[in-house]
């Protein structure tokens, strides 16, 4: 699964994207799995209220299922306009 990070999430994790082998069933499971890996992930995911997630480029919530999903992205609330 392709996992992407933007803005300060990208800075904390240190890479803009990576290929993750996972059997996580939901976004929340994926977050827990990543946070358990290394300190930099735990730091980036420490406050989920401060994060937004997109699943296959559509905004989703942390309970979204990951079955058949190719791309998940994590980022802070958007500041366009």
């Amino acid at each position: 699964m392709n996992v992407l990070y933007f803005a300060w999430v990208r800075e904390r994790i240190g890479v803009p994207r990576e290929d993750v082998e996972t059997s996580a069933e939901t976004v929340r499971d994926l977050v827990a799995e990543l946070a358990g890996r290394e300190e930099r992930y735990a730091l980036a995911f420490s406050d989920l209220d401060a994060l937004r997630v997109a699943v296959d480029q559509e905004l989703a919530d942390f309970d979204a299922p990951l079955v058949g999903v190719r791309e998940v992205a994590f980022f802070p609330p958007m500041t366009g306009g």
């Binding site: 803005a7 905004l59 980022f75 802070p76 958007m78 500041t79 366009g80 306009g81």
Partner: peptide, 13 residues
């Protein structure tokens, strides 16, 4: 404007 601000994936620094 309201939706571009918070629903289009841009981040300003």
């Amino acid at each position: 404007m309201d939706f571009l601000k918070s629903r289009a994936p841009f981040w300003k620094r």
